[in-house]
């Protein structure tokens, strides 16, 4: 292991790390929005939209992100939809994640007993208030372990961004290996940065899961 080389590569890896984390978390943000909207549509059986949402979830849950990105990045421009690699990564991850998040939130919504909505209704709350103040917080608590699992999954999926020439961690590692053939150093840095990205989330996930299991959701 050549520490000199590591010191030399560190700035490039740090830059790539920031890019990966930024697009990764932006994509996760988008996936949360899509997921909540999708779960709402499925749970309250909104006509027409329900069928579309179901189709979207099945389509994106049963195809790899790499294929989705290729379609968005290379296929869609032929229809006149031109986007940069960064936007493509963000949108692709958001769409993939949205399909997983929707399922998580939906099962969370289903776990909230009907009597909660009925009680809120009898207290004079309107539908919007019931959803945002009564149902959603409880659904969140129930689905939080699976949401965190999805977040970890999505952060790991960012590793395919290099296929659409985003200068992420994978791209940088491959590039530097090709240039200097310092394979061991580059792979070590790659692993270290992925651990930095994923370990905190993984720990949060475990804590949350323990809390939910020990009856936090019924509190």
């Amino acid at each position: 292991m050549d520490t000199e080389a590591i010191r030399e590569y560190l700035p490039r890896f740090a830059e790539a790390f920031l890019l990966t984390v930024r697009i990764g978390w932006m994509g996760i943000g988008l996936s949360l929005v899509i997921g909540i909207a999708g779960a709402f549509i499925l749970h309250y059986r909104v006509p027409v939209l329900k069928g579309l949402t179901k189709g979207y979830i099945e389509l994106f849950r049963n195809t790899p992100l790499l294929v989705q990105l290729f379609f968005i990045y290379f296929g869609l421009p032929k229809l006149g939809v031109m986007i940069s690699p960064e936007v493509c990564g963000f949108v692709g991850l958001g769409l993939l994640g949205g399909s997983y998040m929707a399922e998580s939130f939906r099962s969370g919504l289903e776990a909230v007993p009907g009597i909660q909505s009925e009680s809120a209704l009898s207290l004079g709350m309107n539908r919007r208030q019931i959803f945002f103040y009564v149902v959603l917080p409880q659904a969140f608590a129930v689905s939080s372990p699976s949401v965190v699992a999805n977040v970890i999954f999505l952060l790991k999926e960012t590793s395919v961004f290099s296929a659409i020439s985003l200068m992420d961690l994978m791209f940088t590692a491959k590039d530097l290996i090709g240039l200097y053939y310092r394979t061991t150093e580059c792979l070590t840095l790659l692993v270290v940065f992925y651990v930095i990205m994923l370990l905190p989330v993984s720990i949060v996930g475990r804590v949350l899961e323990k809390k939910v299991r020990s009856g936090y959701s019924h509190g």
């Binding site: 960012t158 590793s159 994978m170 394979t183 061991t184 792979l187 992925y194």
Partner: peptide, 19 residues
């Protein structure tokens, strides 16, 4: 589980050859 499969693929394909 914490490593993306892509990273594992690189480690085994490029790293094992080198190391």
């Amino acid at each position: 589980r914490i490593m993306p499969q892509m990273v594992l693929l690189f480690i085994v394909y490029f790293g094992a050859a080198r190391a």
